[in-house]
Design a protein around this nucleic acid. Structure first.
Ligand code: SF4
Ligand code: SF4
Lengths: 132, 132
DNA sequence: TTTATATCCGATATAAATTATCGGATATAT
DNA sequence: ATATATCCGATAATTTATATCGGATATAAA
């Protein structure tokens, strides 16, 4: 409960790795996977996904790889989590309302307050705060 | 990702339900389950668990059920989540360190900061803040 | 032009966590 | 005695997360 997924962690690890290099040098999937002991194919998928979201860009061919494309200090953590993992919310009903209890739920409003607190907390931090 | 479990929601729904009654009246599992459309057996398990944690107490026999035992304003949400769901943490390595990346992980420290923020947020609210 | 090294992409398999159910024991007020 | 409860261990089903496969495409360098 309340955990980050591997996909998010792998994304952040990769971003931090790339950020420590000069701006135009690229990092291959294999390089990152072996360095951090991440399953290659999963990392590949993760990086493809981030490329599609325009966070990083792919350079094809030999000596290719990925490099950072977006301004990481302009992406807050709430946005980032949603880009990588989809909708964010403590309970389903905050983004997808098919809950059996919703008709009679007596805790939705109080939980929404907590949810807002949490999301505000993530909004107050940028990806750069982590990768720096 | 980052969602509460049903067990936590059912627990809170039940607590709020009980809190709205006079202090010594009891609520049966069936009463709560039908009122909120929660699967009976699951709710039963959930209530048994809270009873074992001394949050509520069970009254056996006909006309039995559960009633609140603990002072809900003395239990903060971080404690509560841990009582109901077990250890709390954004990543496994904060309570159970068998992660393949831990040797070379470059994001553990920054994520720990976020983790601390989150847990402090939960510590700053009591169960009563939700059930009231 | 060929080759080796990359990413790309859809589909699928595996594992883990969550959610739900079953069967039968025990307690107790009426 | 009986009906109404909780109690408890075991297990099943479902959903989510994690990992893998197979083959296409792009391109730098030999
Ligand atoms: S139980 Fe209440 S808070 Fe939880 S998902 Fe359903 S409606 Fe939302
Ligand atoms: S990847 Fe890093 S932060 Fe995540 S669990 Fe492993 S060691 Fe902890």
């Amino acid at each position: 409960m309340l955990k980050l997924t591997r996909k998010v962690e792998y994304s952040l690890i990769a971003l931090r790795h790339m950020q420590r290099k000069s701006i135009d040098s690229v990092s291959s999937t294999k390089e990152i996977a072996t360095h951090y002991n991440i399953p290659l194919e999963i990392l590949a998928k993760t990086l493809q996904h981030m490329a599609k979201e325009n966070i990083i860009e792919a350079i094809n061919g030999p000596r290719g790889g990925y490099r950072i494309k977006a301004k990481l200090n302009n992406i807050n953590l709430a946005e980032f989590f949603e880009k990588v993992e989809g909708p964010l919310g403590l309970s389903d009903c905050f983004y997808d309302a098919n809950c059996m209890q919703i008709e009679h739920c007596n805790i939705r409003t109080p939980i929404q307050r907590i949810n807002d607190n949490m999301i505000n907390m993530f909004r107050s931090m940028s990806v750069q705060d982590i990768t720096n």
